[in-house]
Amino acid sequence: MTDLTVWQTAPFDAIIDHILPRYHETHRRQLDEILPLAEKVARVHAQTFNPQILPLVQYIDSELRGHMMKEERMLFPMIKQGVGRGAAMPIKVMMHEHQDHEQAITQLTELTDNFTPPAHACGSWQRLYANLRELTEDLRNHIELENEILFARVMQL
């Protein structure tokens, strides 16, 4: 995981201003590449590519984009405005969605044999798994920063 100590005492605005480009914008770029790649690999390798992977990637794409939009439009502005514990309910909702994201990551990791492409995998398939590994690592770090630092500190107010 990532070193969170730098964020232990950082102002909430600074944490949010870090999360938006480092994680939200990064995830959108990652998903913009991953989804068409997953569709291509599923189509070209329909006989050997696990049929559960594409729907799971589509689910992750949809859920993560919706989740980030809710944080950007509702929760983060509340935190920046100093609402504090008044943001408890949206924080609980976001943390519950984080659990859903973690479950999807676990399922994806299992379905891809820990993002290990088979020996016969083409370059696109290999790139897909490498990109999925990077997305899931970033997403885990993202969730950890929000849950363990930002949300925990806001809830202590």
Rank of each mutant, 00 (worst) to 15 (best):
D13R: 13
I16S: 01
F115S: 05
T26P: 00
H142P: 05
N147I: 07
N114P: 10
G86D: 10
E33M: 06
M68T: 13
S124K: 02
P77A: 05
T26I: 01
M1H: 14
F12R: 10
L54Y: 07
L35V: 15
L135A: 03
T116F: 08
F76Q: 07
T48N: 11
Y59H: 15
Q81P: 06
N141T: 07
V6M: 14
T112Y: 02
T106V: 14
I19F: 00
A38M: 03
Y129T: 00
K70Q: 05
Q103L: 13
L111G: 02
Q99N: 12
L135G: 01
L37R: 06
K40M: 11
Q107F: 04
A119V: 15
I53G: 00
F49L: 04
A119P: 11
A130H: 06
L56S: 05
I34P: 00
P118A: 12
D17V: 01
Q8G: 08
D113Y: 11
R133C: 01
P118E: 13
Q81N: 15
P117Y: 03
L145H: 04
N141M: 11
Q52E: 13
E39S: 13
K80S: 12
A104R: 06
L64H: 11
D3L: 10
G66N: 12
E110V: 12
R28T: 10
W125N: 08
P21A: 00
I16E: 02
M94P: 03
T26F: 09
T5Y: 12
H67D: 08
G84Q: 12
E137T: 13
E71G: 03
A152D: 06
A46N: 06
V6T: 15
P55C: 10
D100W: 01
D32R: 06
N114Q: 14
E146N: 05
N50W: 00
L157K: 11
G84K: 11
M89E: 14
M94G: 02
L56K: 03
L20F: 01
D32S: 08
L132T: 00
D61Y: 10
V154C: 02
P51K: 05
K40F: 11
G123N: 14
E102N: 12
H45M: 07
F115N: 07
R73F: 09
M94D: 02
E110S: 14
